[in-house]
């Protein structure tokens, strides 16, 4: 338990709470989370073409409470649909770090698993799990809408059982993920988000949160520039 001001904050660590009523309450929260997943409207690759059929009147994801959402701050699931080139991966990581916890990542198509048929390519990032924690993979090139929906059902089950803990992993092992990102983008890679501060907030800062790679980050980190404001009088 940590405190912000004098408001106690429940931790993300899965300790059984002593009050049985609190357990029931936690289950209720997880039940609600699993039934209103908003997914981010970001078409990263060719797998995005099977999302409109899965969302619209034939296969209809909305009956499961899954809706497309336009901003990362309102979304719960990040769908990485297909190959991510290095240029896209920077945006995907920035988008992922802007989302509110708890957040989940689904890797759709074979390209996110091991590079798919672009494993020889010089421009794509091969294994998505090295750069961000993936909760569910859906293989296929490209998977049918039924497969997409079945993967989302799997994620719903995992959320209800408290098994979908990818976002906690990102805070706890941030140094590993940052190391892989730096390997790909260079040592001066940074996003304007503050992951270590957030890990402190959720009380998830572990042994592997900070390490050699976060030290490199601190060396290069420049404070944000003042935001220019233009007002017409």
């Amino acid at each position: 338990m940590s405190e912000i001001g004098n408001i106690p904050v429940t931790t993300g660590n899965d300790k059984k709470r002593s009050n049985p009523l609190a357990n029931v309450f936690d289950e209720l929260i997880r039940f609600c989370q699993a039934r209103s997943m908003f997914m981010l409207h970001y078409c990263t690759g060719c797998g995005a073409i099977e999302l409109p059929p899965a969302m619209t009147s034939r296969f209809d994801m909305e009956r499961l409470g899954i809706q497309p959402m336009v901003t990362p701050r309102q979304a719960d699931i990040l769908l990485v649909t297909g190959y991510v080139s290095v240029k896209t991966l920077k945006r995907v990581i920035l988008t992922y770090e802007q989302m509110q916890s708890p957040k989940y990542v689904i890797g759709i198509c074979s390209c996110t698993v091991n590079g798919g048929m672009y494993w020889q390519s010089y421009a794509t990032a091969k294994i998505l799990n090295e750069y961000m924690p993936v909760d569910v993979y859906i293989a296929g090139c490209m998977p049918r809408p039924e497969a997409v929906i079945s993967g989302l059902r799997r994620l719903m089950g995992n959320i209800e059982n408290g098994k979908a803990n990818g976002w906690k992993d990102y805070y706890q092992r941030y140094d590993y993920y940052l190391g892989n990102q730096q390997h790909l983008f260079g040592d001066d890679w940074q996003t304007p988000t503050d992951i270590i501060g957030e890990a402190n907030f959720y009380d998830l800062k572990g042994d592997e949160t900070c390490g050699e790679h976060t030290k490199i980050l601190e060396q290069h980190q420049v404070p944000l520039e003042p935001l220019p404001m233009q007002i017409k009088f």
């Binding site: 404070p223 944000l224 520039e225 003042p226 935001l227 220019p228 404001m229 233009q230 007002i231 017409k232 009088f233």
Partner: peptide, 11 residues
């Protein structure tokens, strides 16, 4: 981390 700066008027 950031503070507002005013610039000349412009649309």
């Amino acid at each position: 981390n950031y503070q507002a700066v005013s610039l000349p008027c412009s649309n």
